[in-house]
C-alpha cells in the first residue's frame, strides 16, 4: 500500500515556514506583472511531479500549448508527465492538442466548475492544481460573481489530497474585493518589487497569511534561476 506524506514540499517556503503545509489547503499567489508568479506556479507544479504527485495546470492567460513551450524553455520538461497521465494541461480557449483539455467558455461559471471538478476528481492523488491566472478570468465576471465563483471552486475541489494554487495580478479586484477573496485561502503569498537597487528590480517573497503553521512574515529577497524557479534568500535577516 502506498502512503503519502501529506506535507507539501515547496522549496521557496522552506526555512520561512515552521513545520509543513498540508495538502487540502488553498493558496493564493499575488504579485505585479513580471514578479515571477507563473514561474512560482511552474516550480510548484514540477516539484510535485518530481515527487510522484500529479498536477493540473489551468492556463487562463495564454494557450496551454504555449505554456508547455514556456515551461520547456525554462527547463521544465512536461512531456513525460503528460504521457504518464500525471500532468493535465487545461485550456480556457480552444485547443487542437488532444492532450490538452478544454473549458470552452470560461465566462460560464457552471461549465468552468463542472469541467474543472471532473478533471481534478479523476487525477491520481496527491494532486497539485494551479490556476494561472485568475486575473483574466475575473475580467469576464462582476466582482460579486467572481468571488462567488472562487468560493464555489474551493468548496467543490477541497480534498485532503489536493492543493490548489490560484495566481492573481496584485490589483485584480478593488481592495474590498481582494480582501474578501483572501478569506477563501489558507495560504497567501505576495511577490513584491519593494525596492529599486541599481535600476534592477529586486524581487521578494512574503508570506501574507498561513493558517496551518507559524511563519516569518517579513519579505525575503529572491531571484529566478533557470531550470529551478524562485530561489529565496532565507539568510537575508541573519546576515
Amino acid at each position: 500500500m502506498i502512503t503519502y506524506n501529506l506535507g507539501i514540499r515547496f522549496s521557496p517556503l522552506e526555512g520561512i515556514v515552521r513545520g509543513t503545509i498540508p495538502f487540502g489547503t488553498t493558496w493564493q499567489v499575488r504579485g505585479e506583472s513580471g514578479a515571477g508568479k507563473s514561474t512560482l506556479g511552474f516550480q510548484f507544479l514540477m516539484q510535485g511531479l518530481r515527487q510522484g504527485e500529479s498536477a493540473v495546470y489551468v492556463a487562463c492567460d495564454e494557450p496551454a500549448t504555449r505554456v508547455r513551450e514556456d515551461m520547456n524553455f525554462f527547463g521544465f520538461s512536461t512531456e513525460p508527465y503528460e504521457q504518464e497521465g500525471k500532468l493535465v494541461l487545461v485550456d480556457t480557449y480552444e485547443s487542437s492538442d488532444p492532450r490538452v483539455l478544454c473549458i470552452k467558455d470560461r465566462g460560464d461559471s457552471q461549465e468552468f466548475l463542472y469541467i474543472l471538478t471532473r478533471i481534478v476528481r479523476q487525477m491520481p492523488r496527491p494532486c497539485r492544481l494551479i490556476l494561472d491566472s485568475l486575473t483574466s478570468l475575473s475580467a469576464v465576471y462582476s466582482t460579486k460573481a467572481f468571488i462567488s465563483l472562487i468560493q464555489d471552486k474551493n468548496r467543490l475541489l477541497r480534498d485532503p489530497e489536493v492543493v490548489i494554487m490560484d495566481i492573481y495580478l496584485k490589483s485584480t479586484l478593488e481592495e474590498a474585493g481582494m480582501y474578501a477573496l483572501t478569506n477563501a485561502y489558507d495560504v497567501c503569498l505576495d511577490l513584491l518589487f519593494p525596492d529599486e537597487k541599481g535600476g534592477v528590480p529586486q524581487r521578494s517573497l512574503r508570506i501574507h497569511k498561513l493558517r496551518t503553521s507559524g511563519y516569518d512574515p517579513r519579505p525575503f529577497p529572491c531571484f529566478i534561476k533557470q531550470g529551478v524557479g524562485l530561489v529565496v534568500d532565507k539568510e537575508f535577516y541573519v546576515r
Binding site: 460560464d108 463542472y114 467543490l156
Partner: peptide, 17 residues
C-alpha cells in the same frame, strides 16, 4: 437553472456537488 449541453455522448449537465 443549471447549464446543459448536448454533446456527442448525449446530454451533459454542468452540475457538480
Amino acid at each position: 437553472l443549471h447549464r446543459m449541453e448536448i454533446t456527442e455522448e448525449g446530454i451533459r449537465i454542468f452540475y457538480v456537488r
